[in-house]
Simulated assay, not measured.
Amino acid sequence: MKKVVFAIIMLLFISVMAVAQNTKLKFRKINDNVYTYTNYHLFSGSPFPSNSSYLVTDDGVVLFDTPWDETQFQPLLDSIEKRHGKKVVLCIATHFHDDSSAGLEYYRSKGIKTYTSKFTKELAEKHNAKQAEFIFENDTVFTIGGQRIETFYPGEGHSYDNIVIWLPKDKFLFGGCFLKSVESDNLGNLSDANVSAWDESLIKLMKKFPKPMYVETGHFKGSKGWKAVKHTLKLVKDYKPD
């Protein structure tokens, strides 16, 4: 009987450790300058993956979105400094939901410049979400360490305020939750979405940046070229409300 109880305890321990390991940051190299990390947040009792990316420049690191899991705010900074020998100097969040903006105020407290669009600021105030220190009203270009970073508002889709981030040198597009992974079979959270406008916004995006090398999505795995964008467009066209 004692052996059975011990075996059950060990199985529970292994299960808990597996969940704990899944909540850690997982890094993926896109190229020498661009990296994606995945963190996990409990959703309906299970760890759910969320992607963010960052750019390494001569003058520091730029984050695109923040971790969803608040326990990973500081570990992300520590990991980046250990991996690249550089500090994070700027963070841009692509929309007001927690899986994009949860760490804004924490990073601001660490002296990191934080930015969102004016639309995101307004929605963050309305929904009592985390807010950036600075805002931009129109599509904006940041230049850090000689690297050009472009923000672009394609129109409504996943949310009223969703923007994307384009790195012309790397031909890398960070789509956040505006874009869905080819692994996704639905549009996800639609609580603030405008599905009827989403397809036009996607087409506008494709015209703006016609030849991306890699596209990162907000959840699950991104893809080379336009696969994720075309998949999102298909999901939008196939969408039928309950």
Results as ranks from 00 to 15, higher is better:
Ser184Tyr: 07
Val164Gly: 02
Trp166Glu: 02
Lys180Pro: 01
Pro168Tyr: 00
Gly155Cys: 03
Tyr153Gly: 02
Thr143Gly: 03
Lys169Pro: 10
Glu183Ile: 08
Trp166Pro: 01
Glu183Lys: 08
Ser184Leu: 10
Phe136Ser: 10
Asp170Cys: 10
Phe178Met: 09
Leu167Met: 11
Arg148Thr: 15
Gly157Asn: 06
Phe172Lys: 03
Pro168Phe: 05
Glu133Tyr: 09
Pro168Lys: 08
Ser184His: 14
Phe174Gly: 04
Lys130Tyr: 04
Leu190Gly: 04
Ala193Gly: 07
Ala193Asp: 01
Ser181Trp: 03
Val141Ile: 13
Asp161Trp: 12
Cys177Arg: 03
Leu173Pro: 02
Gln131Ile: 11
Ile163Glu: 07
Gly155Tyr: 01
Asn186Phe: 11
Arg148Ser: 15
Gly145Ser: 10
Pro154Arg: 14
Pro168His: 08
Asp192Trp: 07
Ser191Val: 11
Gly175Asp: 05
Asn128Gly: 11
Asn194Gln: 14
Phe174Ala: 10
Ile135Leu: 08
Ser159Thr: 15
Phe152Gln: 07
Ser159Pro: 13
Phe136Ile: 11
Pro154Cys: 09
Leu173Phe: 11
Ile163Asn: 05
Glu156His: 13
Val164Met: 06
Asn194Ser: 14
Glu183Phe: 04
Asp161Gly: 05
Asn194Ile: 08
Thr140Tyr: 12
Ile163Ser: 05
Asn128Tyr: 09
Asp185Glu: 15
Tyr153Leu: 05
Cys177Gln: 10
Leu187Gly: 05
Tyr160Trp: 13
Pro154Gly: 03
Lys130Trp: 06
Asp139Ile: 12
Ala193Glu: 00
Glu183Asp: 09
Thr140Gly: 12
Leu167Tyr: 02
Phe142Pro: 00
Ser184Ile: 02
Glu137Ile: 10
Ser159Gly: 11
Phe136Asn: 06
Cys177Ala: 15
Thr140Gln: 10
Val195Asn: 01
Glu137Phe: 09
Ser191Gly: 04
Ile149Gly: 03
Phe174Gln: 07
Ile163Met: 03
Leu179Lys: 02
